[in-house]
């Protein structure tokens, strides 16, 4: 079946069998191997991507269902610089060991930070509850996300956001 979709901003046309899920399509057809496949039944979160701006499991979406959609993978988020600070925080806090879960963790974390710029640790853990890490554990990952949130809040202030304006008035 013929499909046409946008992947990381690039228009893609392809011919796929209906049984091919989006994760395999990205990896095998487009060589975008940053989307990892773990359990292939929606439990582990390694294949997390964004479809039309919303989180999705690439293993639980058929490529044919993504026809006409805007798909963003870890490669896209990485290249655009959207999550550069989050990646840096993961690196600095050693929030990854084998790295298998990392693309999914980053995309899920970014999804949370876009909705809730200052989440508490419990909220972060709840939002990542669908993403398994089997080596470093979660503490460092939560730390890195907290650091990123704090950094973004602070830089908003520096850039003349609400925090800076208020500080100016007070001083």
């Amino acid at each position: 079946m013929k499909i046409a979709l946008t992947v990381n901003g690039e228009a893609i046309g392809a011919e796929v069998e209906p049984r091919v899920h989006l994760g395999d399509f990205l990896r095998e057809h487009l060589s975008l191997t940053g989307t990892h496949l773990g359990c292939e039944h929606g439990v582990c979160g390694a294949c997390t991507v964004r479809i039309d701006g919303a989180l999705a499991r690439a293993c639980l979406v058929l490529a044919v269902q993504a026809d006409g959609c805007r798909v963003e993978t870890i490669e896209g988020l990485s290249d655009s610089g959207e999550i550069a600070d989050l990646q840096q925080a993961f690196h600095e806090r050693n929030a990854l060991q084998c790295g298998y879960c990392t693309p999914g963790m980053l995309i899920a974390a970014q999804d949370l930070l876009l909705r809730d710029p200052a989440p508490d640790r419990e909220t972060i853990r709840e939002h990542l509850s669908g993403n398994y890490c089997r080596c470093t554990g979660y503490h460092a990952i939560v730390d890195a996300i907290v650091t990123t949130a704090e950094g973004r809040q602070a830089s908003k202030g520096v850039d003349g956001g609400p925090t800076a304006a208020m500080t100016t008035v007070v001083s």
């Binding site: 999705a56 499991r57 639980l60 979406v61 669908g130």
Partner: peptide
Amino acid sequence: VAHPAIRAR
């Protein structure tokens, strides 16, 4: 019910 990525779809 499940997790954010699953609830989104």
